[in-house]
């Protein structure tokens, strides 16, 4: 199983807050709506979003999200990173749009699960 570290390396993600980066990633959930992530994401998924505010960390921690990828070149707010460090949540950023990142990640996870 690919770890957060593997994925960060392969997709050139910028690690902004380092939680447990050796955690395995089971899948991915994409949403910009916190209530949607609360309702529908699963344990150990990566979460791809363009939201940058601190509540992202709260939701990730509650839902057991492996890591958060913020897309489209956006940067997390300072409070978000502070909170991520406190909650041991990994935050990464990417210049890719959500669609492109999802496409690349989908391919990566599919191939990893086939092997």
């Amino acid at each position: 199983m690919l770890t957060i570290n593997d994925i960060a390396e392969k997709l050139g993600l910028d690690l902004k807050a380092k939680g447990d980066v050796h955690k395995g990633v089971t899948g991915c959930y994409i949403s910009d709506l916190l209530s949607d992530v609360m309702a529908n994401s699963k344990d150990h998924e990566l979460w791809v979003t363009l939201q940058t505010h601190p509540n992202v960390v709260a939701v990730a921690a509650i839902k057991g999200i492996s890591g958060v990828i913020i897309t489209n070149g956006r940067s997390p707010e300072a409070d978000t990173l502070k909170r991520a460090a406190a909650e041991n949540v990994t935050i990464m950023t990417s210049p890719y749009s959500t669609f492109e990142l999802a496409g690349l990640l989908y391919n990566l996870l599919k191939n990893a699960n086939v092997k």
Partner: peptide
């Protein structure tokens, strides 16, 4: 870009980013 004072419920409606 990215600065917002919108409340959470507005973000859940797809605005306030």
């Amino acid at each position: 870009e990215g600065y917002s004072t919108a409340p959470d419920w507005v973000r859940e409606m797809g605005w306030g980013a």
